[in-house]
Nucleic acid binder design. Structure first.
Length: 336
DNA sequence: AATTTTGACAACCGCCGGATC
DNA sequence: TGATCCGGCGGTTGTCAAAAT
């Protein structure tokens, strides 16, 4: 039955690692293949749990760890990705070469969260009054993350499986009167419109009508978390973001070249591929036919072209996409 | 100068999903 | 098929140094 016991808890050392322990672990890992964390403590002569060794290596000893303060660009990336994906630190870390999820988590908790706190409200608290409701900034799918979806599904017995569900979801998130910034291009709803269930139908029909169209024609603007304009300027600055030269780190320590800016010359197919990854990450694919997934081409998570009917593509236009990398999808799991 | 408070970050804890037996 | 393990992940805690009193 099963495997052998994980690790002997008795006698395992806790608390900070000493330089000698670091040296032992580093030495062992550099001389041997990394196959079994469970076995490493014993083999390396450490009174540590394998898990502890793994954490120490991944978060501190790894040679490709980038030390020092986070740059403004990195912080902007974290902010944007956190906004987009929630506390998926490992996913966020995969977009920041040399940074670990633990480090990013710490930075978020100690710096960024506090910095944004006065202005930013959580998705669930977006229903509170917006101090400046008439100033929706850039659009994004900021609030359509898995937390939103899960909470809404839980609270409202709602399952996101169709464009109708998505429309319901979005209205559920944004329909507070004071927050009614959502609009479909060419249609400017009043606050009352937003309250009306017809707006759900309107949105649903819009989403449905977008099937098969270029997603640039299908822009739906949603309110944006108000982040400092300077951050936006950084986010908008292509040069600030990850470039192929600093592509994400993969397990062998090398960089890949998969990273590119959304909206760059590599074209829309890549953008859609990225979106496909994103959708998968936040489970927006819902009940998508498995065969349809298999048909996706050679890019991204499934390596493919995102079908036109996919939900997030309908919510985004090329110009609203942040310039994130898509490494986590394009090159497999990063090493933590 | 001594003490208290605050901030930063390394490390731990517990849960989960997939793999293995 | 079910029990168990392993690796990964996110949340939380503990420790230490710097800043404030």
């Amino acid at each position: 039955m099963g495997r052998g016991p994980c690790c002997e808890k008795v006698g395992l050392k806790k608390r900070p690692w000493t330089p000698a322990e670091d040296m032992k672990l580093t030495d062992y890992i550099q001389k041997h293949r990394l196959e079994n964390w469970h076995a490493i403590p014993k083999l390396a002569g450490l009174l540590r749990c394998g898990k502890s060794c793994r954490l120490r290596w991944i978060n501190y000893l790894r040679p490709d760890i980038k030390r020092g303060n986070f740059t403004q660009e990195e912080e902007a990336t974290i902010i944007k990705l956190q906004e987009l994906m929630g506390n998926k630190w490992s996913k966020i870390a995969s977009c920041l070469p040399g940074r670990t999820d633990n480090e990013i988590k710490n930075v978020w908790n100690t710096h960024l969260k506090k910095r944004l706190a006065p202005k930013e409200s959580s998705p669930s608290s977006n229903k509170t009054k917006d101090p400046n409701p008439s100033s929706p900034s850039k659009s994004s799918i900021s609030y359509v993350n898995d937390d939103n979806i899960k909470n809404l599904e839980k609270n409202n017995s709602l399952k996101v499986e169709s464009s109708r569900d998505l429309a319901n979801l979005m209205t559920e998130i944004f329909m507070e009167p004071d927050q009614c910034n959502m609009r479909i291009e060419g249609h400017e709803p009043s606050v009352d419109d937003c309250r009306e269930s017809s707006s759900i139908s309107s949105l649903e029909s819009h989403i449905t009508s977008c099937e098969g169209k270029n997603n640039q024609d299908c822009l739906i603007q949603v309110p944006e978390i108000p982040i400092d304009s300077e951050i936006w300027s950084m986010v908008d600055d292509d040069s600030c973001f990850l470039t192929p030269e600093v592509g994400p780190v993969v397990e062998d320590g090398a960089h890949n070249n998969a990273t590119s800016s959304i909206g760059d010359s590599k074209g829309e197919g890549e953008t859609k591929g990225w979106l496909g990854c994103l959708e998968e990450e936040i489970d927006l694919w819902g009940t998508m036919d498995a065969n349809a997934v298999k048909q996706l081409g050679p890019w991204g998570c499934h390596g493919g072209v995102v079908e036109e009917f996919d939900p997030v593509s309908l919510l985004l236009s090329k110009e609203t996409l942040p310039t994130f990398c898509h490494e986590s999808c394009a090159s497999g799991p990063s090493m933590r």
